[in-house]
């Protein structure tokens, strides 16, 4: 075969194979998706040119197979800096954030980064605006982590826990915890959901979740104890509310508050009873108490702001900020809704 003929054959092979490769590539992309071989990537965020999501993809690809090893090494460095007290907490935060970008499928860094924002950096400042920003940061870190790991319970749980334990935004906590139990998860999460409903207070939902826990594992003492407490202390009040016998209901809770005057649950319950009775001034009194006894009770603060608004009273400084944020969020959601 002459040289030019060989060349021609090479070109034909090259182009032929290239064309033949395309359907194979498409089939493989499809298979990976359907068979679950691909690690989830936040495709929708990419389509919106979301900067952190794109950075995660590009950095990950640049590191190739070494991304996990590099992330581990960076994480070890963060560990040692943390324990030796080297660097500021903000330095630690940037290292942690980098680790999440290096290996977004590693859950630990997401959790620790969010915790660092919402707990450690939070206590560094007294400015409520700054505090709110840090809480937001922690929550957003977890939401970003969830977009990379939507089929694992851990980060949903972590977010639910942050809402429950730190921010004390119980409705949100219950939502995220309920999202966590859609995937394989340890038992204690259901109990936590019940705790969240109980604090709201929505005793019926709380009991429903406790019942579920006890049915699944009859020896679940925590769930049993909680069920007994609710049935003894709050269910009588709840029934009285349902019968519109508000004064008697308040009386019932009050007896409990005599014993435990700072019980969050009792104060929430009182607020709830008076709100149902349309006695907003009394309700505000108890929600304010709840908001002030704890360092941060987002839900109580929110309630305070809501009730002040309803009564036409000035909203106290500590609550106004949170309430404004809540309202902005609502407005935003309304706008997106209209657009869709």
């Amino acid at each position: 075969m002459s040289r030019s003929a060989q060349k021609l054959v090479a070109w034909i092979v090259l182009i032929g194979v290239f064309i033949g490769l395309q359907p194979l590539n498409d089939a493989l992309s499809y298979n990976r998706l359907v068979l679950g071989y691909a690690r989830p990537t936040p495709v929708t965020k990419v389509l919106q040119f979301d900067a952190p999501a794109m950075t995660g993809i590009i950095v990950g690809a640049m590191m190739g197979g070494f991304r996990e090893v590099a992330a581990s090494m960076l994480w070890m460095k963060t560990h040692s800096m943390w324990h030796s007290g080297e660097g500021t907490k903000w330095d630690h935060l940037s290292l942690m954030r980098m680790t999440t970008l290096l290996d977004p499928h590693w859950l630990e860094p997401w959790r620790i980064t969010a915790w660092h924002c919402a707990y450690n950096l939070y206590v560094e400042t007294d400015d409520p605006k700054e505090q709110a920003r840090l809480l937001d940061m922690g929550v957003n870190v977890l939401k970003e982590g969830i977009s990379w790991n939507p089929d694992r319970f851990e980060l949903y749980f972590e977010l639910g826990w942050t809402y429950f334990d730190k921010i004390r935004d119980y409705p949100e906590a219950a939502r995220w915890l309920a999202a966590a139990v859609r995937f394989e998860h340890p038992e204690h999460i259901e109990r936590l959901i019940a705790h969240a409903w109980e604090r709201l207070p929505d005793m019926e939902k709380a009991l429903m979740w406790y019942d579920y826990c006890i049915k699944r594992r009859p020896s679940d003492h925590t769930a049993k104890g909680a069920t007994i407490t609710i049935r003894e202390r709050y269910m009588p009040a709840e029934r009285l509310v349902q019968q519109r016998r508000y004064d008697e209901a308040a009386e019932a809770v009050q007896q409990y508050l005599l014993v435990y005057p700072t019980s969050t649950l009792g104060l929430h319950m009182m607020g709830y009873v008076y709100e149902q009775a349309h006695d907003y001034e009394k309700a505000l009194e108890y929600w304010s108490l709840a908001a002030e006894t704890l360092a941060l009770n987002h839900y109580a603060r929110y309630k305070v702001a809501e009730l002040c608004e309803r009564l036409g009273w000035p909203v106290p400084e500590y609550a106004s900020h949170i309430y404004m944020r809540e309202q902005e969020l609502r407005k935003e959601m309304a706008v997106t809704h209209e657009v869709n």
Binding site: M63, G64, G65, F66, R67, E68, V69, S72, D103, W106
Partner: peptide, 13 residues
């Protein structure tokens, strides 16, 4: 997860 990521990741890298 860590074991598999570091092990197989290193082989590839």
């Amino acid at each position: 997860k860590m074991l598999i990521d570091v092990g197989l990741g290193s082989i590839r890298f």
